[in-house]
Amino acid sequence: MVRAAFTESWQRYRERAQRRWKRWINRRIPPAKQVTLDQKRVFIFPTRIGFFFLFTLLVMLVAAINYQNNMGFALTFLLVNIFVVAVLHTYGNLAGLTVHAVRASPVFAGQRAEFEIMVSRAGRRQYFGLHFDWLKQDSAIINLDDCQQQHVKLYLRTERRGWYKPDRLRLETVYPLGLLRSWTWLDLDIRALVYPRPLASGELPGVSSDQPDGMAEPIPGSDDFYGLRDYQRGDSLRHVFWKSVAKGQALQSKQYTAYADRSVWLDWALFEGLPPEQRLSHLCYWVLEFDRRNEEYGLRLPGVTLEPDSGENHRLTALRQLALWGSAAEDQAREPLRAAA
């Protein structure tokens, strides 16, 4: 009883502390596309090894006292002060760096999204052992010694469709001595678009089409090749006739007969009775499937209608609609999310 109450109040306390921490860090290091690290944004504390080093120094001090050895004192004090100046040097190994958000690639829910960031330096100082750690899911170590900038790619797990905006990225370093760690929490204002997880549904239950004769069951494997045409923007790269490209001719796309003149409506209503997320997953699957077959398809969601079309751009639009369906209007805007205060 008491224990449960205690756990609960502890939980409440933790949540409150976490909220307060978020508020504080958002004030101190506000989200931004690029952050230049300075004394306001860099924290520093001894590492475990640092404390062990201080313990070693204590032992050395005791030895110097017991042997009344002046050079022993001198050595110990030298090391103490190396520890002290290491505070500046460890801080200096982050200060002056600028971290930029570059891009985040869209993924299907459950996959890892690729986030690309760039680190650059202003002066000529050499930076070593910059350790990126994002949500303990992915990490990378880079040096910035002989180049002005470096790109880092980190991969984060996604779970739900929609915009995925990961929590703060941790950038830390223990260079030069490993006795102290300086770090910062960066909110790079970067988000990845997460499409629904594609979910196969055997067959499309009763495809709706505008043309009555257009009704047809898609027959797998019947997409017969019938000819080539000049590549047009929007044609899938998978349909490019690479052999001709290799011969030095212009880009050409392969054309397939099946359903080429038919358009299918992928409709929300096709999956009557299923929960919304599952419907979206099935629709996603079919978007990919029709795109693969290079057929035209339209998308109909409550409040959203996408005229039948095919090609890369159409696919991306459809997927984006599926990813963002039902989310708040400002979320759908192109502007990235402002972090919730």
Partner: peptide, 25 residues
Amino acid sequence: MMLQALPLMILLFVVFPRVGPLWNV
């Protein structure tokens, strides 16, 4: 780092209180 630590070391060397041995060695 050593050069920067040197003046601080001299300061500590001068002012750190010297006590007798704590135990036999």
